Computed example of a mutant assay.
Amino acid sequence: MNAAMESDPTQPFRVDAVDYEPALDALRAVRETVFVEEQQVPLELEWDELDPRCVHVLARALDGTPIGTGRLTPEHKIGRMAVLREWRGKGVGDAMLLALIEQARRRGWREVSLHAQASAIDFYLRHGFAPYGERFEEAGIEHQSMRRTISGPTAIDDRDAAIRTVVDILGAARRHAWLYTRDLDPGLFDAPPVIEALRRFGTAGRGNELRVLLQDAGTPQRGHSPFLALAQRLPSVFAFREVEDPVDRAYPSAYLANDLGGYYFRTLGHRFDGEADLHAPGRARQLRGAFMAVWERARPVSEYRALGI
């Protein structure tokens, strides 16, 4: 196997799909540290007969030290997700999960599921997993069953789904995202969960940048958009331009895309309904290309800078 996953050259680690036997010592170094020593899972429950039959991913620091593991079982389940304590919060878990989803996609699987520890539910929600069933105990730890469809885009039908989708796409971004919007979409980009996702994106400390193209820059300013208030505090992260070309101003759609292949596209930009996919690199690149063509001929929003942005 030993297939390298697409990795961000700015990250201090890499994620690979690995063969079980050759990688066993590295897998053991992470899983037994996290599950057996830290979480007190009995050793006999940590390793099972499925392990040799699973697809395993291994995260390593650039010096080769194993720092994270995850597996994909023949039953289409993701599990044994573990990251060493000192590497948590640095994107290792996100990269491993996306690598496992990509392995499932290559096999033509339509869905994957997992048992999330209660403390990790929000992490999986950000990556498009939905909970189902009641919570339960496994190895003495509270868990929630979750699943995610991975074959093609998902229809977004209402504001709540739109908010969840924007939060997911921002949460999954490595460093860059691009937003094309009429006027920062009241009801969406002023929703508290979205503002919090923008704040996390802006304070992640990875040199993140969100570029925003507006058709109407005046309405958010007059409405005292909380997005603009956040951008005022983080001027190096959020950049705004307004389209001027009549053709650009007549463009009816809106979209958000990130640098890990996630996108949310609305055919009519004044509505919430549209389609989204957290892993569609081709479509995300297409949207980014269209965005940058317009960005180059748009004007910087100097009136935002006058406010300190």
Results as ranks from 00 to 15, higher is better:
Q11T: 04
D185R: 03
A173V: 00
S113F: 09
F129Y: 08
M1I: 12
D216M: 04
D185T: 11
D216I: 07
A173Y: 00
L72G: 05
L234W: 05
P186K: 06
W87I: 03
R271I: 02
L179C: 04
Y251V: 07
D48I: 07
D63L: 13
D277E: 09
A116W: 15
V243G: 09
H56C: 08
V167K: 01
T267R: 14
V212N: 06
L256A: 14
L97A: 07
Q117H: 09
H270Y: 15
Q103R: 15
H76R: 10
V166R: 03
T65E: 13
F35I: 08
G282S: 15
W47N: 01
A217T: 03
V166M: 09
T69I: 07
E137H: 05
R106Q: 15
L58A: 01
V167E: 08
G187P: 10
T165L: 04
D185P: 05
D190N: 11
D216Y: 12
R182T: 10
L179H: 07
R148I: 05
L228D: 01
F123V: 00
H56N: 04
P235A: 03
G282R: 13
S236L: 13
P252M: 06
E75R: 00
A250K: 12
L62C: 00
V41H: 04
T181D: 10
E242Q: 13
G202M: 05
A120I: 08
L260C: 12
V83H: 03
P193V: 12
E6A: 15
Q286H: 13
A284Q: 02
H279N: 13
Y304W: 08
R233Q: 15
W109T: 03
A26L: 11
A229T: 09
Y263A: 07
T267V: 15
T267I: 14
A204M: 10
H270F: 15
A61Y: 11
G223N: 13
Y255G: 06
D190R: 07
I121A: 09
L58G: 01
T65W: 05
T203L: 12
D185F: 11
D160L: 13
L50Q: 14
D183A: 14
W87N: 01
Q221G: 08
A82G: 02
G262A: 10
R241G: 10
Y264C: 03
E137G: 07
D168N: 11
Q232E: 11
A4W: 04
R71D: 00
L278M: 08
V34Q: 08
P9T: 02
